[in-house]
């Protein structure tokens, strides 16, 4: 048996897909079925086997922290969930929709998942307000007034209500990342993906971004977070996954992972980052 099967997943893709649409939705709502299900996901870059059989189930409202050494495939995995990366084998089902090559499914899933990047990736030629309202106006087809109202609420929520008319280049890194979070939230996603959201920030700005993420987690958002911020994990994570060499080596609650890691690789890695 391969190491990957350390993590046991109860649901199979068939369980989920065989349910009729309405029951499937209800089951996800009731947290009987996972909102994100990854089943034996494999990915290769050329001959390099990046993801080697990833299994994961995430229920509505859960906060998942994914960590591991660089090159372990953790970023690649989180990017397969909204199809920024393709995978060659296995199944990923997001909010009851199977990720396939079908462009319509991909766009549907992208509407329901927000993503925050390590490098912020704000649109430099648009103001903060335009960054946030672009997708709601053109994808959700909201009227401009509604989109702007929501945007202002979100900017207040992330703590920068007075920067709406500035351009991203005029903001600090921490402010930019908070705008990026507001931009993702403006689409009112069901799931938020964070790909190392604090890795490109100066130390004094990390906290302001983490505070926003903690508030978001406490509000009941489903979150998958790739991060090495163990304080964040300890505070809000429901479960943690340790990735190494394209596999999930160990998973558990923060309590289990921090106090009693079972695998040697997990112990070693934790000892390296918790100094």
């Amino acid at each position: 048996m391969s190491e990957a099967s350390v993590v046991q997943v109860k649901t199979t893709p068939e369980d989920l897909l065989n349910l009729p649409e309405e029951k499937r939705r209800a089951a996800i709502e009731q947290k009987e079925m996972p909102i994100v299900l990854a089943h034996e996901v494999h990915k290769w870059y050329g001959n390099f086997h990046v993801l080697r059989g990833i299994n994961m189930e995430v229920f509505k409202g859960e906060v998942i922290v994914i960590f591991g050494p660089s090159g372990s495939g953790k970023s690649t995995f989180i990017r397969t969930i909204n199809r920024l990366e393709e995978y060659q084998k296995g199944k990923i089902i997001v909010d009851g929709i199977e990720l396939s090559r079908d462009v319509r499914n991909i766009e549907k899933i992208r509407m329901e998942t927000g993503m925050v990047f390590q490098q912020f990736n704000l649109f430099p030629h648009l103001t903060v307000m335009q960054n946030i309202t672009l997708a709601p106006i053109h994808v959700r087809k909201w009227p401009k007034a509604k989109a702007e109202e929501v945007a202002l609420q979100l900017l207040a929520r992330v703590g920068i209500p007075d920067q709406a008319d500035k351009y991203p280049g005029q903001l600090s890194g921490g402010q930019q990342q908070r705008v990026a979070i507001a931009r993702a939230l403006a689409m009112q996603p069901k799931i938020m993906l964070f790909d190392e959201p604090t890795s490109a920030l100066d130390p004094e700005m990390i906290k302001e971004v983490l505070d926003v993420m903690i508030e978001l987690a406490e509000s009941g958002m489903t979150m998958l977070v790739v991060t090495h911020e163990m304080g964040f994990a300890r505070a809000v994570a429901d479960r943690m996954y340790f990735f190494d060499q394209g596999q999930i080596v160990e998973s558990g609650t923060p309590e289990e992972i921090f106090t009693n890691p079972k695998e040697d690789r997990t112990k070693l890695f934790l000892s390296q980052i918790l100094h």
Binding site: F117, L122, A135
Partner: peptide, 27 residues
Amino acid sequence: IPKGQHEAAWALGLSGFQTMYYIILPQ
């Protein structure tokens, strides 16, 4: 134009055309 601009636009659900028209071409 950095790849991240495409990715951010796609992640928001913008179509290929919208990404080009609103994000990539203006820059």
